[in-house]
Computed example of a mutant assay.
Amino acid sequence: MLDLVIEARKASLAPGMDVRRILPFRLRRMVGPFIFMDHAGPVDVQPQMVHSMDVLPHPHIGLSTVSYLFGGQVTHRDSLGVQQVIRPGEVNWMTAGSGIAHSERFEDPAALAGGTLEMIQTWVALPEKEEEAAPAFNNYQPEQLPVFTDTGVWMRLIAGNAYGLKNDVKTHSPLFYLHVVLEQGARFGLPKEHSERGIYIAKGSLEVAGTAYTAGQMLVFNKGADPLVLAKEASTLMLLGGEPLGERFIWWNFVSSRKERIEQAKADWKEGRILLPPSDNTEFVPLPEDRSKPAGDPSPQALS
């Protein structure tokens, strides 16, 4: 029934910005097409430290980045000229395809006051035929994302399809991604539409088949498993999964089905062939030192 429990690991993106990294994991690189997942916050910093947390312009290829906030706000800028503030309940879906650079800046000190900034960022690998697609960006508002409620259960469909819910978020392969809030004692089952499924416990605790699981753990279930999930206390979950895409290599911010494409992306960024955001082009994250890690190993410096 339960294939694996992934324990989130601590990673540091910037001063004051530690995250819990869930994917990739050495025993499980992907769940469906999801190849990367970070949980940042809640973050509480002094106003004078806000800009030290900014994620400077950096590149991606071969994936879509998905940003979803529980609290606070972040300003996104990218090579396409897009500038978009994302707020709780919205979705920023950026498809890197053949190559894009973007930044994420914390320009409203009030959004960090009192530990209100909290966000989940995932990467969705692209099918091979879409890996070199033209870059694109979309912001989706809460009213575009269907909500379902039942006794003790609230859920918002971020993307894909699950539990009979669908929305117009543009995806490239079969998947599902949900924000779920449970009251203590609530019970629910996993969606049956997809072969690979995982539950990340952002807050609270769950019981599955008599065993308790707590915040910071991802539960990955076997194909066809139909467990009954019980909320032992008020809990916030992220459910995700879909159909597998096959092997992917990941190095720093690059994902591809081909190792040689990773090497090309390294050279492209180093030589300035991936454009910086036109409104945020005075600084950037340099290519990390390659310490002879194969392209299949995740870099600890990965950014979203």
Rank of each mutant, 00 (worst) to 15 (best):
78 D>Y: 00
92 N>A: 15
29 R>T: 08
137 F>T: 06
84 Q>F: 07
154 W>K: 00
73 Q>T: 15
147 V>A: 07
144 Q>N: 15
82 V>D: 09
81 G>P: 10
70 F>H: 09
69 L>W: 08
70 F>R: 11
43 V>A: 11
94 M>F: 01
56 L>K: 11
40 A>S: 12
78 D>R: 01
123 W>L: 06
159 A>K: 02
45 V>G: 13
42 P>Y: 03
96 A>R: 05
123 W>Q: 01
43 V>R: 10
54 D>C: 07
91 V>D: 03
24 P>K: 05
54 D>Y: 02
155 M>N: 00
93 W>K: 07
37 M>C: 09
78 D>C: 09
67 S>C: 14
106 F>P: 03
18 D>Y: 10
149 T>A: 02
94 M>L: 05
133 A>K: 01
18 D>P: 01
84 Q>S: 07
22 I>M: 09
73 Q>H: 15
19 V>W: 04
42 P>L: 13
54 D>Q: 06
70 F>Q: 07
21 R>I: 08
153 V>W: 00
104 E>P: 00
71 G>D: 12
99 G>Y: 01
104 E>K: 00
38 D>S: 00
64 S>M: 14
37 M>K: 12
43 V>I: 13
110 A>H: 14
107 E>M: 10
27 L>E: 02
91 V>Q: 03
118 E>D: 03
82 V>G: 09
